[in-house]
Design a protein around this nucleic acid. Structure first.
Lengths: 344, 344
DNA sequence: TCTATTGATTAGAGCGCTCTAATCTTGTAG
DNA sequence: CTACAAGATTAGAGCGCTCTAATCAATAGA
């Protein structure tokens, strides 16, 4: 049997309560006793039982994190950052995944809650708002990449509209005016990105072209094929704003398959700046969400609630930035390749 | 305050013990009482407190999983599979990451252990064997992508030597005979892959060329530049066996940068069959580790130990398979492009 | 010498649950 | 009607810890 506090107390010749004080390094213990207790603990290989501790203290140093999709490196980056923040603040992270399914996610959320964590962070959850509400009644909840109206949960999001606008502005600045958006369908944040695209295009006096797609490479391929069929030259778009990086990679494949060169014939912008985009082989121009900042803010918001320092909700909306790489270029490459509409 | 078992008991008009029986769905409860208890629990929104439960029962349904690198999709796949297996068997997974640093990993391991889990699975851990030994004294431990000599831990690995051999055989079968390996350095499994490469080459009567590299795309780029400098035509290798997929992608970049076409001039094989390799844009020929099987076997091994059904260690060594895509091709493309050595 | 006062230590209750052993119900055979 | 087995229910101790309040020791002030 693993040694308990009682064992340590017996070996050190003190009471269990004193051992408890030492373990929580309370200042009200004499140096001599402290040393004796620590030595006894060391000799026995004693380790506090966190569950017993949290049961007795009615507090928890556990923070639950539910990840929508483990395969998505975007979340991995956020988790890594959360992890070091938690470490520094003396909290333990436990992770979980819902596998992009509302049902499994609901289970995962329940599991997390059954640990009676100090708080939980949900990364792009797909469960209904009511489920989040249930969770929020049990402990502080912070949402990342998902909006909420409830006043009991905090949210951290990137400004998808601004991100799309960044992409459009970049392409317009390069001389493009026939620009299409490959929409992410029902994916998290896809609606904002589409809205931002449309608004930015209109702001430039351009007609937005939107093709319904998905946040996958296959989705990008299909959307491009559809787009090329629907807009044959000379109406063919010369700039593409993809819903995310995967989609952009698929789009590039389909473009090359159709004999078009990127960026010479068509410029492509992704979204998320995943490690994929950074691969030299792709060098995808993309919109970067400030992941570190998002993680940090989410953590801070949670801790504030955990400590009871705040009860009103916060809504962080972070500004993305554009990372220009090799998939976007000046258009027209040679003059006289077309005539911009009067609006520009 | 959240409702406790006592509250449910009071509302249902029964004892706490009876509620406990219902919650663990014991058969020795009358249907009437069971219904009453369940209704009361429902009305109060009662949820059992896992920590209290595990404290009282001295058992745990928690399985700890430590992931070496969250950003690596290989682990994500394994975790997803472990998760559904655990779900089905009535266990709860808690995840953790060590961020590829032995120190952080040691902390993470400690955190996991402090939950007194039923068992733990370590995915490609980098902590010293002694640390694993310490963990194994507390609960069953299974290692994935890491070998061990200790008789108290089970291991699940893919046969890296066989995997490299698969790649070499494929290339030789396509007519290549100048084949180089981009070694993964100190990364997990890199040594086996290199050994397998060398052995397979010798088996074919060919001279193995090994360039020290890393499991990153930058590593692949640098290694290829080095390789091209060291082996100018006509000695230039026509086939590359990379340590992993990232490395292969980097290698392809550097090859194209040098004006060489893949697969026309040089064939490239990756390792791991990550989602990266599957992207149509890359279509990387690669060695596939049977991740699902690995996860399933790891889970089974753990559960057997947890249930006390086995005490001798098991060593699973799984056979990888080759996924042929578009980065490998027949050589020479046209006859008379070289002369194979007599050994073939 | 006797009481405050301060700091160090401990007894003991209790966190929410499980589990054993005891008690309470039935139903049925004698 | 009684006895008793079988099933249903419960009392109560205890898991490993924390926390409050009480106790104890030692010093200082009067």
């Amino acid at each position: 049997m693993r040694p308990t506090m009682e064992d340590v107390a017996a070996r050190a010749g003190v009471s269990r309560a004193l051992v408890s004080l030492v373990m929580r390094n309370s200042p009200k213990v004499s140096d001599a006793r402290r040393a004796a207790v620590l030595r006894a603990a060391e000799e026995l290989g004693y380790q506090p039982h966190v569950m017993a501790r949290s049961l007795a203290s009615r507090t928890s140093t556990v923070l639950g994190v539910m990840v929508n999709d483990l395969r998505n490196a975007f979340f991995a980056d956020i988790v890594e950052e959360l992890d070091s923040a938690a470490q520094a603040a003396g909290f333990d992270l436990i992770l979980n995944t819902g596998g992009r399914s509302p049902t499994r996610e609901w289970n995962a959320l329940h599991n997390l809650l059954s640990f009676r964590p100090a708080g939980i962070i949900l990364l792009s959850p797909v469960v209904p708002a009511s489920a989040i509400q249930v969770a929020a009644r049990q402990c502080p909840v912070v949402l990342v990449s998902r909006t909420a109206r409830s006043s009991t949960v905090d949210t951290v999001n990137d400004d998808g509209e601004a991100g799309s606008a960044l992409a459009v502005d970049h392409l317009v600045g390069l001389g493009h005016w026939r620009i299409a958006h490959l929409d992410g369908g029902g994916a998290a944040g896809a609606a904002q990105r589409r809205r931002g695209f449309e608004a930015a295009m209109r702001r430039h006096g351009l007609e937005p072209i939107v093709v319904r797609s998905e946040h996958t490479d296959i989705g990008g391929e299909n959307a491009v094929r559809e787009l090329l069929a629907a807009y044959p030259p000379p109406d063919r778009p010369t700039g593409l704003v993809s819903g995310n990086d995967f989609n952009a990679v698929g789009a590039i494949s389909a473009l090359e398959e159709a004999g078009l060169r990127v960026p010479d014939d068509v410029s492509v912008v992704g979204y998320d700046n995943t490690s994929l985009a950074a691969l030299r082989h792709l060098s995808l121009t993309t919109v970067d969400q400030p992941r570190k900042d998002m993680a940090r803010l989410a953590f801070e918001a949670l801790i504030e609630r955990v400590r009871g320092e705040r009860t009103e909700p916060v809504r962080h909306l972070l500004h993305p930035s554009l990372v220009v790489r090799a998939t976007t270029a000046q258009f027209p490459t040679r003059p006289k390749a077309g005539r911009p509409p009067s609006g520009t």
